[in-house]
Design a protein around this nucleic acid. Structure first.
Lengths: 333, 333
DNA sequence: TTGTACGCGTTATCAT
DNA sequence: ATGATAACGCGTACAA
């Protein structure tokens, strides 16, 4: 690969001049610029961005850490982020944290060691204190889907409690009073918040919480299947099931059918996230919209404005979810 | 951030020695090693991997280019790749090509300029010639889901033609003779190959191809919906629909239901890929298994063995798909 | 407007 | 076993 030095020699100028036409920050005579450009083209020169990073201490790349690379949720998030940065000429380095503390920390260290100019983190297992300490360092970062008071200005999050509230409120307004709940892993903040919203709605309607109708799932289809089976096995009557995300709702729908139940005639089901496939389940899933793609865009804009002084856009930090009513929920007679 | 130089000073040794204990490739006296390690710990030293890359011309990072970051297909692929590399201590830089020639080429250039030791490419829009030329360069790469004769040894692909054949053969064996086909974008190789397999099965069963029952979709849910509507509008009788992937099959199932058709009683539907949600559609989707995660693993192993001389595993280059029969297809009476 | 020279944080090749 | 010292490819004062 040709270096800047060879280009300089071919163009009959110095290294510095070549560097200048590349970054065009310093005036260069038109004639010289043309010569250099020609030499670059001829040699098929491509700047070595590693060397650029080392010299300039700016890599034009942003590190992203998510829990998983697959799944409808993270996929939409990554796409939102990548689209925004590509348009700005920045690039993206991605690592997976797998919801494990050590893996998440490793990932962050790796991203920092790659000279990322900023980090976008969707971390679940790492402690608040760790992140507060991380904020002392000199790599700026935003937190996605997590709220920490001490770091409020770098958090972009959804009001999960409200979402949980809306889901259950919808059922209560439809006349349901015996409502089962399939939660996410309760060590995860968003799982707890969504459940808290569920409880608030129940209280507001003076409806007692039946802990026999509670199941802690894993945010995956299998969790929804197991949850529904467990709830049915408990013999407690229920007319609706709230699932803490759409994957579990999908699993619950499938298992309900296998067991001979009809949704929503026998019981209603509501999900959370409004991922792509929620429109294609049978019946179409009533769910809570999580504007994850928009939030990815927003995180990227935060970086663009705070770190690169680009982007004039206002950064919205807390997003409000809303209910999408489809066919899996039903008025109770 | 502490540098190797400060560590050296703190430990009372030279740079070179510090470097040696880090890479432990040259013998270092135990006492010295301990001193250096202590100094590193005390200063919270983290090597700057950008500088390491520049000096060693090896970044321990692999560039991945996929068409999209979302969707069940790419997600599974990325996860397979990332898992393999993480276990080997390598890291991954990901870019999206969006199935557009220019974006794909940009992505490749970016990845090369980041000093990636190797590339894993899932490219659809760039030409064979471009890739053959790229192979002259000094960044090794594997091609995923693409076969080019001149680059056969760096291709890891699925026998798409066979998959297309199996899908249609299954229907023919069930007695279907009027079979509609919703294809992917026909400029994509895998879409064409799958369709070719469909045609071969038809021929083998002496069943005429009815081009009125053909629709070119977009590999997304909407394509399946539009395809089914178009086929129904054509007024041609049919008893089965082959969809070139599961997303389109899912769209077709939903639209069928909306229009009052029952699957598989009124007509059968078969998909392709066996993505995660194919088990959770209603009815459960008969489909062709695409071992995409395994192929991601394999691509990673190719890199590990060819580029890093690690991994003793045999590299399997062509994968064979097989049929997974579920509830969306039906014997014809 | 252009060139010189130094620095970025490592690795690697020599000596010692 | 360890220590100087030259790369690696580029950015950038500073000087001209």
């Amino acid at each position: 690969m040709a270096t800047i030095y060879e280009v300089a020699k071919a163009a009959g100028v110095s290294l510095a001049t070549v560097s200048r036409v590349m970054n065009n920050n310093t005036p260069v005579r038109q004639a010289t610029r043309t010569k250099v450009l020609a030499a670059m083209a001829e040699l098929g020169y491509r700047p070595n961005s590693i060397a650029q990073s080392l010299a300039s201490n700016c890599s034009n790349s942003i590190g992203i850490l998510v829990s998983e690379l697959h799944g409808p949720f993270y996929g939409a998030m990554l796409t939102g982020i990548e689209a925004e940065f590509r348009a700005a000429g920045k690039h993206v380095i991605i690592a997976a944290g797998h919801s494990e503390r050590e893996t998440e920390q490793d990932g962050i260290e790796f991203l920092k060691s790659r000279n990322c100019d900023a980090l976008i983190l969707h971390v679940e297992a790492v402690s608040d204190d760790y992140l507060i300490e991380l904020a002392q360092g000199d790599t700026p970062f935003v937190l996605l889907n997590r709220h920490i008071d001490a770091l409020a200005d770098r958090c972009i999050s959804l009001n999960n409690e409200l979402g949980g509230y809306l889901a259950t409120q919808h059922l209560l307004e439809q006349g349901h009073r015996q409502i089962a709940y399939i939660a996410g892993p309760m060590w995860k903040t968003d799982a707890r918040e969504r459940y808290a919203g569920h409880q608030r709605a129940l209280q507001e309607f003076h409806c007692a919480l039946n802990t026999g109708l509670f199941f802690e799932g894993d945010f995956r289809e299998t969790g929804g299947s197991e949850g529904l089976q467990s709830i049915i096995a408990s013999k407690q009557p229920f007319t609706a099931v709230v699932c803490a995300n759409d994957e579990m709702a999908s699993g619950a729908l499938t298992t309900a059918r296998e067991l001979g139940y009809r949704v929503p005639e026998d019981f209603s089901v509501v999900g959370f996230d409004n991922v792509n496939f929620a429109y294609y389940t049978y019946p179409k899933l009533t769910t809570i919209d999580y504007p994850i793609s928009a939030m990815g865009h927003m995180a990227a804009r935060w970086v663009l404005s705070q770190v690169y002084q680009q982007a004039d856009t206002e950064v919205q930090q807390v997003f409000e979810p809303y209910l999408i009513s489809r066919d899996s929920t039903h008025l109770i007679i």
